[in-house]
């Protein structure tokens, strides 16, 4: 079991408050040396005051919270990968895109925004990108592994655990999470740092993630666990996991 005895959102069997203490059979999810944060959808166009995807205060809070979380991760030596789209200006990246057609048909705001062309302010990351962070800017669809070098990057960094944050757990979160676990990455959804693009779909996305993709946890709990793991490894106690 994790040192901090943290819990996760859980629905497969009936448990109190839909939270379960995480089993020691999942200890390998918690080694901070194997973890990387993949932050999805946090690009300026999505927080543009002219047509934000979230209410402005909510968007600002999300950006601030992610900045704080990312800084904590950097201090722990956990790499932060900012993943976003940079559409080619000639429109060719979007010719066959189903996501824009489907959302337009349903009168939904198209996400990711189609104006985030390479080199534009719209495509810049809304969160702080600091020295040592990685930019994954070739994202084309909701699966951030498709047509990008995300898997290559994770391999060369020797990371086996992906922690998903950002905007759109119901699209980017599921798309990237599903792809990641099919490649046998161990996955987390930071439930307080990854709202859905569509609030009505957030609960369903969280349920699916918890059943089939990975651990749905509070980011603060995960940071605490990583701190304890680091301290244990530094030799302040016996075994790293209880």
């Amino acid at each position: 079991m994790p040192i901090s005895k943290m819990n996760a959102f859980f629905i497969r069997y009936p448990v109190e408050n839909q939270r379960i203490l995480i089993s020691d059979k999942l200890n390998d999810y918690f080694n901070p040396e194997e973890a990387a944060v993949i932050e999805l959808g946090m690009q300026a166009a999505h927080f543009d005051s002219a047509s934000p995807l979230l209410a402005p205060e909510t968007g600002e809070r999300l950006i601030a919270s992610l900045n704080t979380f990312n800084e904590s991760c950097r201090r722990l030596g956990i790499p932060v990968i900012h993943a976003g789209v940079n559409w080619r200006p000639d429109g060719k990246d979007l010719v066959q895109a189903g996501f824009s057609k489907i959302q337009a048909f349903n009168d939904l705001t198209i996400y990711p925004v189609l104006t985030m062309e390479k080199g534009t302010k719209a495509a810049e990351f809304a969160t702080e990108v600091k020295a040592g962070d990685y930019r994954l800017t070739a994202v084309k669809r909701y699966n951030a592994f498709e047509a990008t070098d995300l898997e290559f990057l994770l391999k060369v960094l020797n990371k086996k655990v992906i922690v998903l944050t950002g905007l759109g757990c119901d699209c980017f979160g599921l798309g990237t999470g599903f792809a990641g676990i099919c490649k046998d990455y161990r996955a987390f959804l930071a439930e307080d740092l990854f709202p859905a693009k569509d609030p009505e779909l957030e609960e369903g996305a969280k349920r699916v993630f918890s059943l089939f993709i990975g651990l749905v946890v509070e980011s603060g709990s995960l940071l605490e666990e990583w701190h304890l793991q680091k301290a244990a490894k530094a030799g302040k106690g016996g075994k790293a996991n209880a």
């Binding site: 189903g98 996501f99 489907i102 959302q103 349903n106 939904l108 909701y142 119901d170 699209c171 599921l174 569509d198 009505e200 779909l201 609960e203 369903g204 996305a205 349920r207 699916v208 059943l211």
Partner: peptide
Amino acid sequence: GSSPQNEQAAKDIIGSYLGL
């Protein structure tokens, strides 16, 4: 799927982002 509730969630997610 695993339950009617989760079937509806899958349906809504697919219908919102992925297909018809």
